[in-house]
Design a protein around this nucleic acid. Structure first.
Lengths: 197, 197, 197, 197
DNA sequence: CATGAATGAGTCTTCATTCAT
DNA sequence: AATGAATGAAGACTCATTCAT
């Protein structure tokens, strides 16, 4: 009886569930996704699901956390760069890259449904903070270097950059045709116009 | 011959329900709002609700339709104006005005939860079309007048104006503090920067 | 203000409702027939329905009563005849005639759904009694005349004649094709075989 | 690898529910039987019910199917017999046996309430066909052997045998006193009279 | 660890009936 | 008398979660 906790295997399976949930949430929304559907998609039994997550909401939180971690890691990786303006552009570009996963817009919509829940609000706040705090030093640097306008507080600039990115994702989630790949340059340009002194 | 129809009374009551539903949806999201909660908020019995709407989803559709009608009416009211650039700015401003109703961002999130439903998709498409089609002639005119950049097709410009507006609303729905009233000028300016030739 | 109670008009309208209900019950069954459907069929408002009948069940009782009355009247009309055997055959034939109204089988099925209700049980008992009591003297006379077998009590013969008639109606209500008009002779013959000494 | 399937246990529990439903339907009719009542009778939770049957109607269909299967099995078991006339009598007798379950007449009435539903119509048709098709060869054989009248097509004879059996069951379901056990001989005799050349 | 049968709280929706006009 | 808007009790069904195996 090998009490094999095998954390690697455990983590892998956890990710399978997270991925399955992401697929389901994106396609059906949070409320209309049943835990049974996630289990089917993940190829596990319903009992197993609750071995890995105490409740349905926790998978969603895990997805959000993964996103936040990714953001943090991305900014971590930019450390030491000196081309502040480029970093901002890269960040915007990188966000557009994330849309390569066609589930993202659907998931963003799905999250809206449970935004009211305190634990989700906290996770979202953390996510927004990660983006904001990641962006801030680069915009501040750009500002200092005169590359970025200084008539507006850096805080607000961060907010607006993120607003435009959000709008971009929102269009991808909308009903009218919108090709994120084709509009990526426009996104970068729009943010550039926002920041231009 | 008692003709107890009184369409005015009927319509008024219908609006009471719609308003109650808007409040609930914005606060709790669609799925977590029970029809009972809407009835309580509207001060009616559960049976009455289904007298006015065949199903819960139909109130949400009614709200969307009201929004679409409002958009159509607004653009209708601008007819005959010659200052195309100003009209676009006014539209953006008008959208910001709508955020005076603090329930709007919450409602927008709530809609996300049922976007997958065909009838909702249709209503949303109609709404997006109304905004797009309302904006289009003014951007085209601005373009012809040289006030608006012409390196990008007018269609795409419409989309991007709306994307920025969406981003603005999204921030209002977000967890980080964001004061729509204080950011209104920034919104107009950002759109202006987007459109500048 | 003519306080026109006009009993004739009242009775006429009552019959319109009864007829509408018969149509609906036959087509949909009792439970699946809504009072609204009856009103629609009768061309009246829902409030009017309850002016004429205290509850939905009472229309069904009225239909049953009409049937019982018809049976009683029919036997009343045979009074004085001396050809007992012929009367029995005529009764059977007359029942087959009633199937000219294609709603009859459906209605009989519909009644089954509420047979448990005491008031319906009473009405049905009255109806069965009317048939039984109407038939009895003729079978007794036939028996005395030697036209009808006497190895079985007349009571039981009544029951069996009615059982065969019921079976006939039941086939008309069944799923397999069955043409009551074409089988009418067979019905009379089958009853004749039952009664033959 | 816990393979908790145990189809026997599953089938047993399914039958418990079917039996409980039969009891309820017979006593209250279909519409007046709540799923909660079936669950109470079966000693299960409401959720369990829907684990075994997708909807209330499906238990009724299961009961019908069980009956059809029983009929088919009975005729299957007669294969090889050469005394066609006896087989028909045995069939009639066997039907009377089924009335040993006093719920049968009530259930038959209950089915009437939902006969209009397509799925029920199909199941009933299958049931009627099973009886008809089971009976047919024996009546045909009896006919060929000269034991059964040949002035009427065998098809119609089948129908009439079943009509009489239905009438018998109908009387058992009626309001007037009727003792199926005591009338069993009469039933067999009546069918014999019907078939006599 | 993994499973899936069992559970029951929670929802939407229906519809007979009432009553002010 | 006639109407139909309003009502709320009642019921079918869903689904997150538990737990024995």
């Amino acid at each position: 009886m090998p009490r094999t906790v095998d954390p690697a295997r455990h983590e892998a399976r956890r990710l399978v569930i997270v991925d399955a949930a992401l697929t389901c949430f994106a396609a059906q929304g949070y409320a209309r996704t049943t835990t049974a559907a996630i289990c089917r998609q993940a190829g596990i039994g319903s009992g197993t699901f609750f071995h890995y997550f105490p409740a349905k909401l926790d998978v969603l939180l895990a997805i959000l956390e993964l996103g936040t971690d990714e953001t943090v890691a991305w900014f971590e990786a930019q450390r030491g760069r000196t081309d502040a303006g480029r970093v901002v552009a890269d960040f915007v570009d990188h966000t557009a890259d994330n849309l390569a996963d066609p589930r993202l817009p659907g998931f963003v919509r799905a999250v809206g449904a449970v935004m009211g829940t305190p634990s989700v609000a906290v996770a979202l706040r953390r996510d927004e903070d990660a983006q904001h705090d990641g962006l801030f030093p680069w915009l501040a640097a750009g500002c200092a270097a005169g590359e970025v306008r200084d008539d507006i507080a850096v805080d607000r600039l961060c907010t607006w950059v993120l607003a435009i990115v959000d709008g971009f994702i929102g269009r991808a989630a909308g009903e009218r045709p919108f090709d994120p790949a084709a509009e990526r340059d426009m996104l970068v340009d729009t943010v550039a116009r926002l920041l231009r002194p």
